[in-house]
Design a protein around this nucleic acid. Structure first.
Lengths: 148, 148
DNA sequence: TTACTATATTTGTATATACAAATGTTGTAG
DNA sequence: CTACAACATTTGTATATACAAATATAGTAA
């Protein structure tokens, strides 16, 4: 991806600014591609993210606050996100017995099955996005990103 | 920025997936910081972006399609974005005489003055975000990002 | 001229997101 | 026990964004 070509400019961009724009463009592309990979399943990237977190709980239910902590993109309205998954039958939600302020969210079997399918699509899409990077380059990239 | 710490997970994440998440987290941080830097000026990152493109035109007006092409984040509703800048008096908009389908958008003096102030804030914010990277590391990062 | 196609922008609508306020529950000081 | 602060989630509202359809203008072939 060439920054200058994408934003159609001929003038040189200062390195710091170029770095910021470059990161934004790459992440835009990632978001778009992964979103497209998930489109056939009717879930957004955020909804997929929540399902993955729930699976990671290994049977233990997750509270709203847990989801919020672990989501890649923090958002205030996790409630409405879970609502949508509930509607699809991918999760269930019950009030926590020991502390009725909390709610417990679990992934259903239907959700697990759907998630497995989505995983395939997403993993393929990720591999595609990263196709031109060697393992060492990915490691180098991660090290550089640690500096933010 | 440590990925595992941010999304509060103890289990190892496969390198490709970690790379994707890492990029997303860094860009989230960038968007948030730059958005905050612009908040005092009452413009969004996108609006700032449009103002910068207009300044880059060096007096020549830009058509809607030009803005769309050059924006970091392509969007369908450039019209409404320009509406907001118009309301603030930062740009003006006239129907193109030679081709009445097109509109010509210019940055006003007021817009230029405001942009100069915003630039200071954004540049400072960018420098802050990139503070831990040397010039060589920025170059290395840009090269790796070219592979997407 | 008329009909048709392409171009440039605008608008409608649905969904997403951010932020603040509201609701309901729990713990605790007096 | 009551009042009050803290907590966990939900809801309201405004703004942002994506996508498709609508509008208006221009170019072109018959």
């Amino acid at each position: 991806m060439n920054v200058e070509a994408v934003i159609k400019t001929k003038t040189a961009i200062p390195l710091p600014q170029r770095t910021i724009i470059h990161l934004t463009l790459v992440t835009n592309k990632i978001t778009e591609e992964l979103g497209n990979a998930l489109k056939p399943y009717g879930v957004s990237l955020q909804q997929f993210n929540v399902l993955r977190i729930l699976r990671g709980q290994q049977g233990k239910p997750a509270h709203m606050s847990t989801l919020n902590e672990r989501m890649v993109r923090k958002m205030s309205n996790t409630t409405r996100l879970v609502d949508k998954l509930l509607l699809k039958g991918y999760v269930d939600r019950v009030v926590c017995e020991s502390n009725r302020r909390k709610v417990e969210i679990n992934i259903t079997n239907k959700g697990m099955d759907a998630l497995r399918e989505m995983d395939k699509a997403v993993t393929a899409s990720e591999a595609d996005l990263l196709a031109e990077l060697t393992e060492d380059q990915m490691k180098a990239l991660n090290l550089l990103l640690d500096k933010f």
